[in-house]
Each structure stands twice: as structure tokens, then as C-alpha cells.
Deep mutational scan, measured.
Amino acid sequence: ELREAFRLYDKEGNGYISTDVMREILAELDETLSSEDLDAMIDEIDADGSGTVDFEEFMGVMT
């Protein structure tokens, strides 16, 4: 189920989504998050600083 959700956002099928897209997902899930909260969450999610979120990083957030 998580893989299907990931595929919805990984429109190009390249195995990752951008941190911008991940930020939008988080904002949709919790509309009360401030910009600073979102920045901090993205920094934590994208631990390797690649600017992308792969499936493993995505799973870590969603579980």
C-alpha cells in the first residue's frame, strides 16, 4: 500500500520524489504545520541531503 502511494508521487518512475513534493504531502497531511516545521521535517527525512526522498525514506515517514 505504501509503495502504491509512493508511485503516485513518483510520476516519472525514477525511484524518488523531490523534497518539494514531500513537503506538499506533509502539508496536506497536517495543515497546521508551519513552514519552519516543514523545513525541519524535510531535513530529517532527507538525511543524506540529496534533495530527494527515496522509498525507504518515504516509508520511514509514513510508518
Rank of each mutant, 00 (worst) to 15 (best):
E1C: 15
E1D: 15
E1G: 13
E1N: 14
L2R: 02
L2F: 11
L2Q: 03
L2V: 05
R3M: 12
R3E: 15
R3D: 14
R3K: 14
R3P: 03
R3N: 09
R3Q: 10
R3I: 13
E4C: 15
E4Y: 06
A5H: 13
A5R: 15
A5F: 15
A5W: 15
F6D: 11
F6N: 10
F6M: 08
F6R: 08
F6Q: 08
F6C: 15
F6W: 12
F6Y: 03
R7A: 15
R7Q: 15
R7P: 13
R7H: 13
L8H: 15
L8W: 14
L8P: 09
L8E: 15
Y9T: 02
Y9I: 09
Y9K: 03
D10H: 00
D10E: 02
D10Y: 04
K11F: 10
K11M: 10
E12M: 08
E12C: 07
E12D: 11
E12A: 07
G13N: 09
G13K: 04
G13E: 06
N14W: 06
N14F: 10
N14G: 03
N14L: 13
G15W: 03
G15R: 01
G15H: 02
Y16M: 04
Y16E: 03
Y16G: 01
Y16D: 01
Y16V: 05
I17S: 00
I17W: 02
I17G: 00
I17Q: 00
I17E: 00
I17M: 03
S18W: 03
S18D: 05
S18C: 05
S18F: 06
S18N: 06
S18V: 04
S18K: 06
T19W: 05
T19M: 12
T19G: 03
V21Y: 08
V21D: 12
V21M: 13
V21Q: 15
M22Q: 00
M22C: 04
M22R: 00
M22W: 04
R23C: 02
R23E: 01
E24R: 15
E24A: 13
E24T: 13
I25K: 01
I25P: 00
I25T: 01
I25H: 01
I25S: 00
L26M: 06
L26F: 05
L26T: 00
L26A: 02
L26E: 00
L26H: 00
A27Y: 11
A27I: 11
A27F: 10
A27L: 13
A27S: 12
E28D: 10
E28Y: 10
E28N: 14
E28T: 11
E28G: 14
L29T: 06
L29S: 07
L29K: 08
L29C: 14
L29N: 07
L29F: 11
D30M: 12
D30A: 06
D30F: 14
E31M: 11
E31H: 14
E31T: 13
T32G: 10
T32Y: 08
T32I: 04
T32D: 08
L33H: 04
L33Y: 07
L33G: 01
L33R: 06
L33D: 01
S34N: 09
S34F: 04
S34P: 02
S34G: 06
S34C: 04
S35K: 14
S35I: 11
S35H: 10
S35A: 12
S35T: 10
S35F: 08
E36V: 09
E36H: 09
D37C: 12
D37G: 06
D37V: 09
L38S: 01
L38P: 01
L38K: 02
L38A: 02
L38T: 01
D39I: 06
D39H: 05
D39E: 08
D39K: 08
D39Y: 05
A40Y: 10
A40M: 11
A40V: 09
M41A: 06
I42C: 01
I42Q: 01
I42Y: 01
I42G: 01
I42L: 10
I42M: 10
D43G: 11
D43T: 11
D43H: 13
E44K: 13
E44M: 12
E44Y: 13
I45F: 07
I45H: 03
D46M: 03
D46Q: 03
D46Y: 03
A47D: 05
A47H: 12
A47N: 08
D48P: 02
D48R: 07
D48M: 06
D48Y: 06
D48E: 07
D48C: 05
G49A: 08
G49N: 12
S50T: 11
S50A: 05
S50H: 05
S50E: 04
S50N: 10
G51M: 05
G51V: 02
G51W: 02
G51C: 04
G51I: 01
T52C: 04
T52I: 08
T52R: 10
V53K: 01
V53S: 01
V53M: 04
V53L: 08
D54I: 06
D54G: 11
D54P: 05
F55M: 07
F55I: 09
E56P: 06
E56I: 11
E57H: 12
E57F: 06
E57W: 07
F58N: 01
F58H: 00
F58G: 00
F58L: 04
M59C: 09
M59A: 13
M59V: 15
G60K: 15
G60I: 14
G60M: 15
G60P: 04
V61A: 15
V61P: 02
V61M: 11
V61W: 15
M62P: 02
T63E: 10
T63Q: 12
